[in-house]
Amino acid sequence: MIQSEVIKQFGKQINRVVNETLDKLAVSEGSIVIEDKGALDCVIKARVEAAVLRGSGTEELDWEKLS
């Protein structure tokens, strides 16, 4: 679920960035709520990664997969 102030202009792009990030982390299912205020793609990536890593309790990161 994505809520964004810029959903009309950037909704598709946000969706794509989120999905790409999740794919890289091999996350296929889950309840993901995103509340965006117009962040850059790199911030959205970092936030999604942080949420997944916290949610899964991952301590050691595989940096190759974070891009």
Partner: peptide
């Protein structure tokens, strides 16, 4: 610390 590290990592690549 964990989330900031990822933010900085992604920002550096911007």
């Amino acid at each position: 610390k964990d989330s900031a590290r990822l933010l900085v990592f992604q920002a550096l690549r911007h």
